[in-house]
Design a protein around this nucleic acid. Structure first.
Lengths: 225, 225
DNA sequence: GCCTCTAAACTTGTATGCTAGTTTAAGATG
DNA sequence: CATCTTAAACTAGCATACAAGTTTAGAGGC
Protein backbone atom coordinates (compact mmCIF):
# COMPACT_ATOMS: atom_id res chain seq x y z
CA UNK A 1 0.00 0.00 0.00
CA UNK A 2 1.11 3.50 -0.80
CA UNK A 3 1.16 5.76 2.25
CA UNK A 4 0.35 9.39 1.51
CA UNK A 5 1.52 12.39 3.49
CA UNK A 6 -0.70 13.40 6.37
CA UNK A 7 -2.03 16.91 5.91
CA UNK A 8 -1.67 19.54 8.63
CA UNK A 9 -4.55 19.45 11.13
CA UNK A 10 -6.07 16.43 9.35
CA UNK A 11 -7.54 14.06 11.90
CA UNK A 12 -6.69 10.39 11.88
CA UNK A 13 -10.00 9.22 10.52
CA UNK A 14 -9.97 11.50 7.48
CA UNK A 15 -6.35 10.65 6.83
CA UNK A 16 -7.04 6.93 6.94
CA UNK A 17 -10.07 7.39 4.72
CA UNK A 18 -8.12 9.36 2.13
CA UNK A 19 -5.24 6.88 1.99
CA UNK A 20 -7.44 3.78 1.85
CA UNK A 21 -9.69 5.23 -0.85
CA UNK A 22 -6.70 6.24 -2.93
CA UNK A 23 -5.23 2.77 -2.67
CA UNK A 24 -8.50 1.11 -3.59
CA UNK A 25 -8.95 3.27 -6.67
CA UNK A 26 -5.38 2.71 -7.78
CA UNK A 27 -5.65 -1.03 -7.14
CA UNK A 28 -2.87 -1.16 -4.57
CA UNK A 29 -5.56 -2.72 -2.42
CA UNK A 30 -6.73 -5.28 -4.91
CA UNK A 31 -10.39 -6.23 -5.39
CA UNK A 32 -11.08 -9.37 -3.39
CA UNK A 33 -8.08 -9.00 -1.11
CA UNK A 34 -8.46 -9.20 2.63
CA UNK A 35 -7.64 -6.15 4.70
CA UNK A 36 -6.95 -6.02 8.41
CA UNK A 37 -7.66 -3.18 10.80
CA UNK A 38 -4.48 -4.10 12.64
CA UNK A 39 -2.26 -4.06 9.56
CA UNK A 40 -3.70 -0.81 8.28
CA UNK A 41 -3.39 0.96 11.60
CA UNK A 42 0.23 -0.16 11.89
CA UNK A 43 1.03 1.06 8.39
CA UNK A 44 -0.70 4.39 8.96
CA UNK A 45 0.77 4.93 12.41
CA UNK A 46 -2.67 5.09 14.02
CA UNK A 47 -4.66 2.96 16.40
CA UNK A 48 -7.52 0.77 15.27
CA UNK A 49 -10.23 3.29 16.18
CA UNK A 50 -9.78 5.90 13.41
CA UNK A 51 -8.96 3.20 10.85
CA UNK A 52 -12.07 1.30 11.81
CA UNK A 53 -14.18 4.43 11.48
CA UNK A 54 -12.82 4.90 7.96
CA UNK A 55 -13.57 1.30 7.04
CA UNK A 56 -17.13 1.59 8.33
CA UNK A 57 -17.70 4.57 6.09
CA UNK A 58 -16.34 2.70 3.08
CA UNK A 59 -18.52 -0.30 3.86
CA UNK A 60 -21.59 1.95 3.64
CA UNK A 61 -21.05 2.34 -0.08
CA UNK A 62 -20.20 -1.35 -0.42
CA UNK A 63 -16.64 -0.81 -1.63
CA UNK A 64 -15.46 -2.70 1.44
CA UNK A 65 -17.35 -5.67 2.77
CA UNK A 66 -17.14 -6.10 6.53
CA UNK A 67 -17.99 -9.64 7.61
CA UNK A 68 -18.61 -9.34 11.36
CA UNK A 69 -16.13 -11.23 13.50
CA UNK A 70 -14.66 -12.77 10.35
CA UNK A 71 -12.83 -10.44 8.01
CA UNK A 72 -13.03 -7.41 5.81
CA UNK A 73 -12.34 -7.57 2.10
CA UNK A 74 -12.06 -5.06 -0.72
CA UNK A 75 -15.15 -5.65 -2.81
CA UNK A 76 -14.77 -7.26 -6.21
CA UNK A 77 -15.92 -5.11 -9.11
CA UNK A 78 -19.67 -5.58 -9.26
CA UNK A 79 -20.77 -4.31 -12.61
CA UNK A 80 -24.35 -3.83 -11.45
CA UNK A 81 -23.02 -1.41 -8.85
CA UNK A 82 -20.77 0.30 -11.36
CA UNK A 83 -23.80 0.73 -13.59
CA UNK A 84 -25.88 2.11 -10.71
CA UNK A 85 -23.15 4.57 -9.92
CA UNK A 86 -22.87 5.50 -13.59
CA UNK A 87 -26.65 5.91 -13.77
CA UNK A 88 -26.58 8.17 -10.75
CA UNK A 89 -23.78 10.30 -12.16
CA UNK A 90 -25.42 10.46 -15.53
CA UNK A 91 -28.80 11.54 -14.24
CA UNK A 92 -27.44 14.06 -11.77
CA UNK A 93 -24.76 15.54 -14.00
CA UNK A 94 -27.15 15.97 -16.90
CA UNK A 95 -29.59 17.78 -14.64
CA UNK A 96 -26.76 19.90 -13.31
CA UNK A 97 -25.45 20.99 -16.70
CA UNK A 98 -28.97 22.13 -17.52
CA UNK A 99 -28.75 24.47 -14.57
CA UNK A 100 -25.17 25.38 -15.42
CA UNK A 101 -26.20 26.55 -18.88
CA UNK A 102 -28.63 28.93 -17.18
CA UNK A 103 -26.52 29.98 -14.24
CA UNK A 104 -22.89 30.11 -15.43
CA UNK A 105 -21.38 33.60 -15.62
CA UNK A 106 -18.45 34.56 -17.86
CA UNK A 107 -15.99 34.08 -14.98
CA UNK A 108 -17.30 30.54 -14.48
CA UNK A 109 -16.72 29.73 -18.13
CA UNK A 110 -13.23 31.18 -17.89
CA UNK A 111 -12.43 28.94 -14.91
CA UNK A 112 -13.61 25.93 -16.89
CA UNK A 113 -11.45 26.95 -19.87
CA UNK A 114 -8.44 27.37 -17.62
CA UNK A 115 -9.00 23.86 -16.34
CA UNK A 116 -9.11 22.57 -19.93
CA UNK A 117 -5.85 24.30 -20.77
CA UNK A 118 -4.18 22.50 -17.89
CA UNK A 119 -5.73 19.20 -18.91
CA UNK A 120 -4.22 19.60 -22.36
CA UNK A 121 -0.83 20.38 -20.85
CA UNK A 122 -0.82 17.31 -18.62
CA UNK A 123 -2.09 15.17 -21.46
CA UNK A 124 0.82 16.26 -23.67
CA UNK A 125 3.26 15.66 -20.83
CA UNK A 126 1.65 12.36 -19.87
CA UNK A 127 0.78 13.00 -16.24
CA UNK A 128 -2.21 10.77 -15.43
CA UNK A 129 -2.40 11.76 -11.77
CA UNK A 130 -2.74 15.46 -12.47
CA UNK A 131 -5.12 14.72 -15.33
CA UNK A 132 -7.20 12.68 -12.92
CA UNK A 133 -7.35 15.49 -10.39
CA UNK A 134 -8.33 18.03 -13.02
CA UNK A 135 -11.05 15.77 -14.38
CA UNK A 136 -12.56 15.50 -10.91
CA UNK A 137 -12.27 19.20 -10.39
CA UNK A 138 -13.96 19.94 -13.72
CA UNK A 139 -17.04 18.00 -12.69
CA UNK A 140 -16.97 19.48 -9.21
CA UNK A 141 -16.96 22.99 -10.68
CA UNK A 142 -20.13 22.21 -12.59
CA UNK A 143 -21.92 21.30 -9.34
CA UNK A 144 -20.57 24.39 -7.63
CA UNK A 145 -21.84 26.64 -10.38
CA UNK A 146 -25.30 25.06 -9.98
CA UNK A 147 -25.12 25.36 -6.18
CA UNK A 148 -25.32 21.61 -5.70
CA UNK A 149 -22.09 20.94 -3.82
CA UNK A 150 -23.62 18.63 -1.25
CA UNK A 151 -25.11 16.51 -4.01
CA UNK A 152 -21.64 16.25 -5.55
CA UNK A 153 -20.17 15.18 -2.22
CA UNK A 154 -22.73 12.41 -1.84
CA UNK A 155 -22.41 11.33 -5.43
CA UNK A 156 -18.66 10.98 -4.98
CA UNK A 157 -19.20 8.43 -2.23
CA UNK A 158 -20.75 5.88 -4.54
CA UNK A 159 -18.64 7.04 -7.46
CA UNK A 160 -15.69 5.15 -6.07
CA UNK A 161 -17.01 2.09 -7.91
CA UNK A 162 -17.12 4.09 -11.11
CA UNK A 163 -13.76 5.72 -10.35
CA UNK A 164 -12.02 2.41 -9.88
CA UNK A 165 -13.11 1.34 -13.34
CA UNK A 166 -12.41 4.78 -14.76
CA UNK A 167 -8.88 4.56 -13.41
CA UNK A 168 -8.35 1.20 -15.06
CA UNK A 169 -9.50 2.70 -18.32
CA UNK A 170 -6.82 5.36 -18.13
CA UNK A 171 -4.24 2.63 -18.57
CA UNK A 172 -5.95 -0.03 -20.62
CA UNK A 173 -7.53 2.19 -23.26
CA UNK A 174 -5.48 4.00 -25.83
CA UNK A 175 -7.33 7.22 -26.51
CA UNK A 176 -9.67 8.29 -23.71
CA UNK A 177 -10.98 11.34 -25.62
CA UNK A 178 -11.71 12.75 -22.21
CA UNK A 179 -10.03 16.11 -22.64
CA UNK A 180 -11.84 16.69 -25.91
CA UNK A 181 -15.17 15.85 -24.23
CA UNK A 182 -14.53 18.41 -21.52
CA UNK A 183 -13.58 21.09 -24.01
CA UNK A 184 -16.69 20.51 -26.10
CA UNK A 185 -18.88 20.70 -23.00
CA UNK A 186 -17.27 23.91 -21.86
CA UNK A 187 -17.90 25.58 -25.19
CA UNK A 188 -21.50 24.44 -25.40
CA UNK A 189 -21.97 25.79 -21.87
CA UNK A 190 -20.52 29.08 -23.06
CA UNK A 191 -23.15 29.06 -25.84
CA UNK A 192 -25.83 28.26 -23.22
CA UNK A 193 -26.94 25.21 -25.17
CA UNK A 194 -28.37 22.75 -22.61
CA UNK A 195 -29.47 20.14 -25.16
CA UNK A 196 -26.03 19.90 -26.73
CA UNK A 197 -24.25 19.92 -23.36
CA UNK A 198 -26.46 17.18 -22.01
CA UNK A 199 -25.78 15.11 -25.08
CA UNK A 200 -22.04 15.55 -24.68
CA UNK A 201 -22.20 14.62 -21.01
CA UNK A 202 -24.16 11.51 -21.82
CA UNK A 203 -21.56 10.39 -24.36
CA UNK A 204 -18.74 11.34 -22.01
CA UNK A 205 -20.00 9.24 -19.12
CA UNK A 206 -20.95 6.30 -21.29
CA UNK A 207 -17.39 5.88 -22.57
CA UNK A 208 -16.65 3.81 -19.49
CA UNK A 209 -19.49 1.52 -20.29
CA UNK A 210 -18.12 0.97 -23.77
CA UNK A 211 -14.67 0.28 -22.37
CA UNK A 212 -15.95 -2.35 -19.97
CA UNK A 213 -15.13 -5.28 -22.23
CA UNK A 214 -11.55 -4.13 -22.73
CA UNK A 215 -11.02 -3.57 -19.03
CA UNK A 216 -12.51 -6.88 -18.15
CA UNK A 217 -10.07 -8.64 -20.42
CA UNK A 218 -7.14 -6.86 -18.84
CA UNK A 219 -8.19 -7.59 -15.25
CA UNK A 220 -10.50 -10.63 -15.28
CA UNK A 221 -9.67 -11.74 -11.73
CA UNK A 222 -11.03 -8.51 -10.29
CA UNK A 223 -14.60 -8.99 -11.48
CA UNK A 224 -17.46 -10.49 -9.57
CA UNK A 225 -19.82 -11.35 -12.40
CA UNK B 1 -35.66 11.18 23.44
CA UNK B 2 -37.75 8.19 22.48
CA UNK B 3 -35.88 4.91 22.84
CA UNK B 4 -36.85 2.27 20.32
CA UNK B 5 -36.62 -1.47 20.78
CA UNK B 6 -33.32 -3.05 19.81
CA UNK B 7 -33.78 -5.58 17.05
CA UNK B 8 -32.42 -9.11 17.33
CA UNK B 9 -28.80 -9.38 16.12
CA UNK B 10 -28.68 -5.63 15.48
CA UNK B 11 -25.27 -4.30 16.43
CA UNK B 12 -24.90 -1.29 18.69
CA UNK B 13 -23.89 1.12 15.97
CA UNK B 14 -26.87 0.41 13.72
CA UNK B 15 -29.19 0.53 16.71
CA UNK B 16 -27.86 3.92 17.80
CA UNK B 17 -28.07 5.21 14.24
CA UNK B 18 -31.66 4.09 13.87
CA UNK B 19 -32.80 5.62 17.15
CA UNK B 20 -30.97 8.92 16.66
CA UNK B 21 -32.23 9.35 13.11
CA UNK B 22 -35.78 8.64 14.17
CA UNK B 23 -35.57 11.18 16.96
CA UNK B 24 -34.12 13.83 14.66
CA UNK B 25 -36.83 13.37 12.06
CA UNK B 26 -39.56 13.45 14.69
CA UNK B 27 -38.04 16.52 16.36
CA UNK B 28 -37.46 14.85 19.72
CA UNK B 29 -33.90 15.95 19.15
CA UNK B 30 -34.62 19.53 18.26
CA UNK B 31 -32.78 21.44 15.54
CA UNK B 32 -30.06 23.51 17.20
CA UNK B 33 -29.97 21.48 20.39
CA UNK B 34 -26.72 20.13 21.75
CA UNK B 35 -26.21 16.40 21.98
CA UNK B 36 -23.69 14.53 24.06
CA UNK B 37 -22.05 11.20 23.34
CA UNK B 38 -22.14 10.45 27.05
CA UNK B 39 -25.83 11.19 27.49
CA UNK B 40 -26.82 9.26 24.38
CA UNK B 41 -24.75 6.24 25.26
CA UNK B 42 -26.26 6.19 28.75
CA UNK B 43 -29.79 6.42 27.37
CA UNK B 44 -29.15 3.72 24.80
CA UNK B 45 -27.34 1.41 27.18
CA UNK B 46 -24.20 1.40 25.06
CA UNK B 47 -20.69 2.71 25.40
CA UNK B 48 -19.48 5.82 23.61
CA UNK B 49 -17.88 3.93 20.74
CA UNK B 50 -20.94 2.71 18.81
CA UNK B 51 -22.78 5.97 19.53
CA UNK B 52 -19.83 7.96 18.28
CA UNK B 53 -19.69 5.89 15.09
CA UNK B 54 -23.36 6.66 14.49
CA UNK B 55 -22.83 10.39 15.06
CA UNK B 56 -19.92 10.45 12.62
CA UNK B 57 -22.11 8.94 9.95
CA UNK B 58 -24.82 11.52 10.56
CA UNK B 59 -22.29 14.33 10.44
CA UNK B 60 -21.30 13.18 6.94
CA UNK B 61 -24.68 14.30 5.61
CA UNK B 62 -24.55 17.44 7.72
CA UNK B 63 -27.60 16.63 9.81
CA UNK B 64 -25.34 16.70 12.87
CA UNK B 65 -22.55 19.20 13.18
CA UNK B 66 -19.53 17.95 15.12
CA UNK B 67 -17.37 20.78 16.41
CA UNK B 68 -14.08 19.06 17.33
CA UNK B 69 -13.30 19.13 21.05
CA UNK B 70 -16.25 21.47 21.58
CA UNK B 71 -19.69 20.02 21.07
CA UNK B 72 -22.07 18.34 18.67
CA UNK B 73 -25.37 19.89 17.72
CA UNK B 74 -28.39 18.84 15.69
CA UNK B 75 -28.20 21.00 12.57
CA UNK B 76 -30.76 23.73 12.12
CA UNK B 77 -32.95 23.39 9.06
CA UNK B 78 -30.90 24.76 6.18
CA UNK B 79 -33.28 25.33 3.33
CA UNK B 80 -30.49 25.29 0.75
CA UNK B 81 -29.72 21.75 1.88
CA UNK B 82 -33.39 20.79 1.88
CA UNK B 83 -33.61 22.08 -1.66
CA UNK B 84 -30.49 20.17 -2.70
CA UNK B 85 -31.94 17.03 -1.24
CA UNK B 86 -35.25 17.71 -2.96
CA UNK B 87 -33.41 18.36 -6.23
CA UNK B 88 -31.58 15.06 -5.88
CA UNK B 89 -34.75 13.13 -5.14
CA UNK B 90 -36.58 14.81 -7.95
CA UNK B 91 -33.94 14.13 -10.58
CA UNK B 92 -33.32 10.55 -9.50
CA UNK B 93 -36.93 9.56 -8.94
CA UNK B 94 -38.03 11.00 -12.27
CA UNK B 95 -35.30 9.04 -14.03
CA UNK B 96 -36.30 5.94 -12.11
CA UNK B 97 -40.00 6.12 -12.96
CA UNK B 98 -38.99 6.32 -16.62
CA UNK B 99 -37.29 2.96 -16.16
CA UNK B 100 -40.17 1.65 -14.07
CA UNK B 101 -42.63 2.34 -16.87
CA UNK B 102 -40.50 0.12 -19.10
CA UNK B 103 -39.56 -2.54 -16.61
CA UNK B 104 -42.52 -3.03 -14.28
CA UNK B 105 -44.33 -6.35 -14.64
CA UNK B 106 -47.95 -6.98 -13.65
CA UNK B 107 -46.90 -8.36 -10.26
CA UNK B 108 -44.95 -5.16 -9.58
CA UNK B 109 -48.01 -3.03 -10.32
CA UNK B 110 -50.05 -5.26 -8.04
CA UNK B 111 -47.57 -4.73 -5.19
CA UNK B 112 -47.83 -0.99 -5.70
CA UNK B 113 -51.64 -1.13 -5.66
CA UNK B 114 -51.60 -3.19 -2.49
CA UNK B 115 -49.44 -0.50 -0.89
CA UNK B 116 -51.96 2.16 -1.96
CA UNK B 117 -54.82 0.22 -0.44
CA UNK B 118 -53.01 0.17 2.87
CA UNK B 119 -52.20 3.87 2.60
CA UNK B 120 -55.89 4.61 2.17
CA UNK B 121 -56.72 2.49 5.17
CA UNK B 122 -54.24 4.22 7.44
CA UNK B 123 -55.30 7.58 6.13
CA UNK B 124 -58.91 6.88 7.05
CA UNK B 125 -57.86 5.62 10.47
CA UNK B 126 -55.41 8.48 10.99
CA UNK B 127 -52.18 6.59 11.57
CA UNK B 128 -49.36 8.92 10.47
CA UNK B 129 -46.56 6.55 11.48
CA UNK B 130 -47.79 3.71 9.33
CA UNK B 131 -48.61 6.12 6.53
CA UNK B 132 -45.06 7.40 6.74
CA UNK B 133 -43.61 3.90 6.50
CA UNK B 134 -45.80 3.03 3.53
CA UNK B 135 -44.83 6.24 1.74
CA UNK B 136 -41.15 5.37 2.13
CA UNK B 137 -41.78 1.85 1.00
CA UNK B 138 -43.68 3.01 -2.07
CA UNK B 139 -40.69 5.02 -3.26
CA UNK B 140 -38.31 2.22 -2.37
CA UNK B 141 -40.32 -0.21 -4.46
CA UNK B 142 -39.94 2.03 -7.49
CA UNK B 143 -36.15 1.88 -7.16
CA UNK B 144 -36.24 -1.87 -6.67
CA UNK B 145 -38.27 -2.36 -9.81
CA UNK B 146 -35.69 -0.32 -11.73
CA UNK B 147 -32.81 -2.24 -10.10
CA UNK B 148 -31.43 0.87 -8.48
CA UNK B 149 -31.56 -0.11 -4.80
CA UNK B 150 -28.11 1.19 -3.95
CA UNK B 151 -28.99 4.57 -5.41
CA UNK B 152 -32.06 4.62 -3.18
CA UNK B 153 -29.95 3.79 -0.12
CA UNK B 154 -27.58 6.64 -0.83
CA UNK B 155 -30.35 9.06 -1.63
CA UNK B 156 -31.96 8.26 1.71
CA UNK B 157 -28.86 9.45 3.53
CA UNK B 158 -29.24 13.03 2.40
CA UNK B 159 -33.03 12.74 2.36
CA UNK B 160 -33.09 13.09 6.12
CA UNK B 161 -33.11 16.87 5.60
CA UNK B 162 -36.07 16.51 3.30
CA UNK B 163 -37.70 13.96 5.60
CA UNK B 164 -37.51 16.22 8.61
CA UNK B 165 -39.44 18.89 6.73
CA UNK B 166 -41.76 16.31 5.21
CA UNK B 167 -42.60 15.09 8.69
CA UNK B 168 -43.41 18.59 9.86
CA UNK B 169 -45.72 18.96 6.88
CA UNK B 170 -47.68 15.90 7.96
CA UNK B 171 -48.83 17.83 11.01
CA UNK B 172 -48.92 21.42 9.86
CA UNK B 173 -50.67 21.01 6.53
CA UNK B 174 -54.30 20.02 6.31
CA UNK B 175 -54.59 17.92 3.18
CA UNK B 176 -51.32 16.37 2.06
CA UNK B 177 -52.82 14.83 -1.12
CA UNK B 178 -50.02 12.35 -0.83
CA UNK B 179 -52.07 9.19 -1.11
CA UNK B 180 -53.83 10.47 -4.20
CA UNK B 181 -50.45 11.30 -5.79
CA UNK B 182 -49.25 7.78 -5.19
CA UNK B 183 -52.39 6.26 -6.65
CA UNK B 184 -52.19 8.39 -9.78
CA UNK B 185 -48.56 7.42 -10.26
CA UNK B 186 -49.31 3.75 -9.87
CA UNK B 187 -52.01 3.87 -12.50
CA UNK B 188 -49.92 5.81 -14.99
CA UNK B 189 -47.16 3.24 -14.44
CA UNK B 190 -49.70 0.53 -15.17
CA UNK B 191 -50.45 2.38 -18.43
CA UNK B 192 -46.71 2.59 -19.15
CA UNK B 193 -46.93 6.34 -19.57
CA UNK B 194 -43.51 7.75 -18.56
CA UNK B 195 -44.33 11.37 -19.44
CA UNK B 196 -47.41 11.42 -17.26
CA UNK B 197 -45.73 9.56 -14.40
CA UNK B 198 -42.78 11.92 -14.43
CA UNK B 199 -45.11 14.86 -14.30
CA UNK B 200 -46.97 13.41 -11.33
CA UNK B 201 -43.72 12.70 -9.50
CA UNK B 202 -42.55 16.23 -10.08
CA UNK B 203 -45.74 17.67 -8.61
CA UNK B 204 -45.65 15.17 -5.76
CA UNK B 205 -42.15 16.09 -4.65
CA UNK B 206 -42.68 19.81 -5.10
CA UNK B 207 -45.53 19.85 -2.59
CA UNK B 208 -43.00 20.15 0.19
CA UNK B 209 -41.53 23.22 -1.46
CA UNK B 210 -44.94 24.85 -1.57
CA UNK B 211 -45.54 23.99 2.06
CA UNK B 212 -42.30 25.59 3.18
CA UNK B 213 -43.85 28.90 4.15
CA UNK B 214 -46.50 27.25 6.31
CA UNK B 215 -43.97 25.06 8.07
CA UNK B 216 -41.65 27.95 8.65
CA UNK B 217 -44.38 29.86 10.40
CA UNK B 218 -45.18 26.93 12.66
CA UNK B 219 -41.54 26.31 13.65
CA UNK B 220 -39.56 29.53 13.10
CA UNK B 221 -36.93 28.80 15.76
CA UNK B 222 -35.79 25.67 13.90
CA UNK B 223 -34.67 27.46 10.76
CA UNK B 224 -31.18 28.63 9.91
CA UNK B 225 -31.93 31.18 7.22
C1' DG C 1 -3.71 -42.00 5.70
C1' DC C 2 -7.85 -39.87 7.37
C1' DC C 3 -11.19 -38.28 10.24
C1' DT C 4 -12.53 -35.72 14.83
C1' DC C 5 -11.96 -32.91 18.39
C1' DT C 6 -9.81 -29.10 20.70
C1' DA C 7 -7.17 -25.19 21.59
C1' DA C 8 -4.84 -21.35 19.94
C1' DA C 9 -4.67 -17.57 16.82
C1' DC C 10 -6.94 -14.83 14.31
C1' DT C 11 -11.18 -11.51 13.16
C1' DT C 12 -14.46 -7.47 14.31
C1' DG C 13 -17.50 -5.35 18.19
C1' DT C 14 -17.57 -2.89 22.43
C1' DA C 15 -16.00 -0.68 26.71
C1' DT C 16 -12.99 2.28 28.93
C1' DG C 17 -9.14 5.21 29.97
C1' DC C 18 -6.30 8.88 28.49
C1' DT C 19 -5.11 13.20 25.73
C1' DA C 20 -5.83 17.67 23.94
C1' DG C 21 -8.57 21.41 23.47
C1' DT C 22 -12.66 24.49 24.93
C1' DT C 23 -15.93 26.44 28.01
C1' DT C 24 -17.36 27.82 32.45
C1' DA C 25 -17.34 29.47 36.74
C1' DA C 26 -15.25 30.59 40.94
C1' DG C 27 -11.90 33.40 43.21
C1' DA C 28 -8.55 36.90 43.66
C1' DT C 29 -7.36 41.62 42.75
C1' DG C 30 -7.97 46.29 41.67
C1' DC D 1 -18.71 46.09 41.70
C1' DA D 2 -15.98 44.98 37.62
C1' DT D 3 -12.27 42.44 35.55
C1' DC D 4 -8.69 39.40 35.02
C1' DT D 5 -6.74 34.75 36.27
C1' DT D 6 -6.94 30.12 36.97
C1' DA D 7 -8.58 25.69 37.80
C1' DA D 8 -12.14 22.48 37.20
C1' DA D 9 -15.52 20.39 34.25
C1' DC D 10 -16.86 19.66 30.15
C1' DT D 11 -16.06 18.24 24.87
C1' DA D 12 -14.38 15.03 20.99
C1' DG D 13 -10.13 12.30 19.25
C1' DC D 14 -7.39 8.48 19.97
C1' DA D 15 -5.31 4.34 22.20
C1' DT D 16 -5.90 0.13 24.30
C1' DA D 17 -7.95 -3.74 26.70
C1' DC D 18 -11.37 -7.05 26.57
C1' DA D 19 -15.47 -9.77 24.64
C1' DA D 20 -17.55 -12.67 21.27
C1' DG D 21 -17.29 -15.20 17.31
C1' DT D 22 -14.62 -17.64 13.36
C1' DT D 23 -10.89 -19.98 11.27
C1' DT D 24 -6.91 -22.76 11.41
C1' DA D 25 -3.70 -25.97 12.77
C1' DG D 26 -2.41 -29.82 15.11
C1' DA D 27 -2.79 -33.74 18.34
C1' DG D 28 -4.91 -38.01 19.02
C1' DG D 29 -7.50 -41.98 17.84
C1' DC D 30 -8.77 -45.23 14.46
Amino acid sequence: MKILERLPRENGRDYALRVIKDNIIHLNLEPGSQISENELSAELGLSRTPVREALIELSKVRIIEIQPQKRSVVALIDYDLVEESRFMRNVLECAVVDLVCEMAGPEDVERLRENIRLQKFYWDNFNPDQLWTLDDHFHQMLFEIAHKSQVFALMQNISIHFDRVRNMALFSVKDPKIVQDHENMTESIACRDPVKTRELMEVHLSRYRIDAVVIRKAYPQYFKN
